[in-house]
């Protein structure tokens, strides 16, 4: 498989991520900006995996794996932190 194929797909996915950040930047609510965590988690992993093939750097697959792991943790921390900034009280739900 020619590696250029993967580079092409990586570029397209990178563009979708950049366009997604328009929404993140515009908001209008704080929750809209939290979507950044989501967007970055999924498309970021996709990009790393494509680049691993494109440039034959298997280590990037491990980067993707760690990014996926971190996405879970940072996503949760991000939402908790953003909640505090907003000044809302500690969420009262049973499941956090």
């Amino acid at each position: 498989m020619p590696e250029g194929v993967f580079v092409g797909f990586a570029i397209v996915i990178f563009i979708t991520m950049l366009l997604g950040f328009i929404r993140v930047e515009r908001g209008p609510t704080a929750a809209d900006r939290m979507l950044a965590a989501q967007l970055f988690g999924t498309t970021g992993v996709a990009l790393m995996l494509l680049l691993a093939e494109a440039f034959q750097v298997p280590a990037l697959r491990d980067v993707a794996l760690v990014l996926a792991l971190l996405a879970a943790v940072t996503g949760i921390a991000f939402v908790k932190r953003a909640n505090q900034i907003q000044g809302s009280e500690t969420p009262g739900g049973t499941v956090s």
Partner: peptide, 11 residues
């Protein structure tokens, strides 16, 4: 994704 989307929607 599942956990963050739940948390964002709840927030």
């Amino acid at each position: 994704t599942a956990t963050t989307s739940h948390l964002i929607a709840r927030a």
